[in-house]
């Protein structure tokens, strides 16, 4: 099985078959791993370049561990320690790394669209690990995978995402993927952070926090993306949209609590809630590893520079 897309830049790149293939592969990899069996190093001899131009712990390490567990070597390039600081363009950096034999690029950038712009010039796959306020497809896939693991299906489920939606790339990729998987998605927050125009993307907009949480099957709390604000101080606006212990009683009996991380304890989510039994925040992180392994495995094998790898996934 190979994906129909060469790059993973956006959820829209993936066909329904691609999405199922990623989920199936992630499940298989997790079961191999939990049975203490060895995972076939399908990316042996390959080099994955992790280019992170924005701070990240989870995503960068998750991709790095995923690539290593598949046998790939990983080079980490951080903006602060790269020639970009000397004035080299990011495209030149990637072209140089490609010339050195990098087979796969994992790119995070603070500006929307940069992975798209780079991918146009590269021969090898590019994975968008988060670009500006645009998209974070691997996060959406792992979020969906975590929920599928709990529920079996997303069909008819109500997922509510709360907070700074406009600046958040996870919210947009989640919306796109969850809708495709049959869920209903509600965005909740104040107008400046949750513009009504988001309705045009298929989201339900709810301004009232209690209304938003009481019917939700899963609630995702977003961090305030203060690094993307252009001057305005939105902290006051978010005050009525914090999830605290008082709200636990309002939620549906089996409602799940999620966060893409990092969480700001005591800001959007109180510790008691984040650490409660309803929280699946760490399940998300665990699935993140297997989902990213699946993505790397499925995209990395079709590398045109090397042909398909010798090791198959039987």
């Amino acid at each position: 099985m190979e994906l129909t897309t060469r790059h993973l830049l956006d959820i829209a790149d993936l066909s329904p078959q691609d999405i199922s293939a990623i989920f199936d592969m992630a499940k298989r990899l997790r079961s191999i791993s939990s049975n203490q069996k060895e995972i076939t190093p399908s990316l042996k001899g390959k080099i994955a370049a992790n280019l992170f131009f924005e701070p990240s712990t989870r995503t960068r390490v998750s991709f790095e561990m995923a690539a290593k567990r598949l046998g790939a070597e990983v080079v980490n390039i951080l903006e602060s320690a790269s020639s970009v600081k000397k004035g080299e363009t990011l495209l030149d950096t990637t072209l140089n790394l490609q010339a050195m034999g990098c087979n796969l690029f994992i790119i995070r950038h603070p500006e929307s669209g940069v992975p798209h712009q780079i991918a146009r010039h590269l021969k090898v796959p590019v994975i968008n690990a988060g670009d500006g306020s645009h998209a974070h497809p691997s996060q959406a896939l792992l979020d969906a995978m975590t929920l599928l693991d709990k529920w079996g299906t997303l069909e008819g489920k109500q997922v509510t995402i709360i907070g700074d939606i406009i600046h958040n790339r996870v919210a947009k990729s989640d919306l796109e993927l969850f809708l495709r998987l049959g869920a209903k998605v509600t965005f909740c927050g104040p107008e400046p952070l949750v513009p009504t125009a988001l309705r045009e993307l298929g989201a339900i907009i709810e301004r009232d926090f209690l209304n938003a949480i009481k019917n939700a099957d899963a609630i995702m709390m977003l961090r305030m993306q203060s690094e993307r604000w252009s001057g305005d101080d939105h902290w006051e606006l978010i005050e009525p949209y914090r999830l605290t212990r008082e709200h636990l009683g309002v939620l549906k009996k089996n409602a799940l609590i999620m966060a893409p991380g990092p969480i700001n304890r005591g800001v959007e989510i109180e510790s008691v809630v984040a650490d409660s039994e309803r929280s699946i925040i760490l399940d998300q992180v665990e699935w993140g590893l297997y989902v990213r392994m699946a993505i790397l495995h499925l995209l990395g094998r079709g590398d045109p520079l090397r042909g398909s790898a010798a090791v198959d996934d039987k």
Partner: peptide, 12 residues
């Protein structure tokens, strides 16, 4: 242009 597409693409 401000609207659906700018929101989709994460551009101001």
């Amino acid at each position: 242009n401000a609207g659906k597409v700018s929101l989709q693409l994460g551009l101001a």
